[in-house]
Write a protein that binds this DNA or RNA. Structure first.
Lengths: 259, 259
DNA sequence: CCCGATCGGTTCGCTATATAAACCAATGGT
DNA sequence: ACCATTGGTTTATATAGCGAACCGATCGGG
């Protein structure tokens, strides 16, 4: 692994539950030498990608990342486009919807919308790392991802988030085949207990999966009517988002609606 | 300069007018060796910070930057807080307002708001690099920045964006002193012709300048009344923003309003 | 009040790593 | 048919990164 990759890998240890990390913690998390981590972080700091908070000397993400994100949005306006799609989707289904994107080898939730209609709802966080197994978004992405990548994911130890999580690679492979033929993934309580979620893939300009659009509802509210409505709304929303970001579905993606 | 800094410096060549850059262009822009640039970009690509667009093989910013930005906002919600402040400021003054932040050694505009009241307005772009000389935001930041940094900026060749741009370091030093005593900077046509702008500093938790809040108006609309109203509104907005992000002004900052 | 355990940060000799020049193959314009 | 581009690759060389050991400061407990 090159120096640059090492430095950037340090940034992956930041997440919502860990917005500030001290030098020693980072060395433990990364397994690298303390001097190495220090030097890398110093360089990242010089460029403004991380900064040291005032009181203790722990690191947090710096302002420079905002500039890059603004430019990325200018070039590829996925987030701003998705916000409209998500809002419509939540209005239509009455449930929480969210978008997750495949970034490198991990799946991150990046944007979400709640429905104003219902008091109880599934809460979401942005910038949260999703597992591939156990989430409908993860499964649908895996189903349409590069087979080598899918196998790589399945070859690693799969943690069970809930008693419902399916962790057997064979069982998962079978489910993936089913998803490929239907074009939509369903998960019941595989990531959070009592959460029932559907997900459809989102494709990029090169016809590869770039992420997933999902609707998550409390299992108790999944009536027969909802089980009809949600998949239909999701398929439409997924196709719309894919289209509006200049993407297109691969030939093997089942298109029951030729929009 | 370390390898990591070199790699990250490549990202600075992306801006609004240049969202995609080819390998050879990047080599020329950076002055580095082509093989070096190639390897660095390959590493950045592996981590998802840049990606290669479909048709030609030019690079553009990748999806990973969105994750970082979302986390940065979660840790330090400058942008979301600023949007409210900017909107209020534009409503109150009837003109375009914007926020710029000091990132590393450069000043970037990052967020803006227009007034709904007037048809003609000064247009703004986010993620645009501002010069220190010639803009009110740049001058006010320089006035409150580390003196060594200010001198470093002034020691470099200063380009004249318009015939009105002041490029004489001595003259600028004199203006900076004036800004320090008044707490506000004014610029007339120094960056864009016929644009009259005011700016106040924004301070971080360590009492250092982190950026500037500015109001930009067509010079033709700068009546005596506006020349009263805008600075007053700006001072209030600046103090509010500094406060709401947990910052505080240094002792030498003129506070005529003890809020 | 001292001791041991942390913390962030630094030093230095060794070596792995990044670098630059030269070289491809593939386009594309003239 | 040519030359000037493009993105990408090779290889000997030297530079930049590496890790073990070492600081001083801080903190909590005995």
């Amino acid at each position: 692994m090159g120096t640059v990759s090492k430095a950037l890998s340090l940034l992956t240890y930041f997440d919502h539950s860990r917005t500030r990390i001290g030098l020693s913690d980072l060395t433990r998390l990364s397994g690298m030498n303390k001097a190495t981590v220090y030097r890398l972080m110093s360089e990242l700091q010089e460029s403004g990608y991380v900064e040291q908070a005032g009181d203790d000397r722990s690191y947090r993400l710096g302002p420079q990342v905002l500039r890059l994100a603004a430019l990325r949005e200018a070039a590829v306006p996925i987030l701003s486009v998705s916000r409209r799609v998500l809002r419509d989707l939540s209005d239509e289904t009455g449930e929480t919807s969210h978008l997750s994107l495949l970034q490198g080898r991990q799946l991150n939730s990046l944007s979400h919308a709640y429905s104003p209609r219902t008091a109880t709802k599934v809460m979401m966080e942005d910038a949260k790392v999703l597992t591939f197994h156990g989430t409908s978004s993860g499964m649908v992405v895996l189903a349409y991802a590069d087979p080598d990548f899918a196998e790589e994911v399945l070859s690693q130890p799969l943690e069970a988030r809930t008693p419902e999580t399916v962790t057997d690679p064979q069982e998962i492979r079978a489910q993936l085949a089913g998803i490929r033929s239907s074009g939509i993934a369903v998960s019941v309580g595989g990531f959070e207990a009592d959460v029932h979620s559907h997900a459809v893939p989102v494709f990029g300009p090169d016809r590869k999966v770039i992420g997933a659009l999902a609707v998550a509802a409390p299992a108790s509210r999944m009536t027969a009517e909802q089980k009809q409505l949600i998949p239909a709304a999701l398929r439409r929303a997924g196709a719309a988002l894919t289209h509006r970001i200049g993407g297109s579905a691969p030939a093997n993606y089942p298109q029951d609606e030729t929009a």
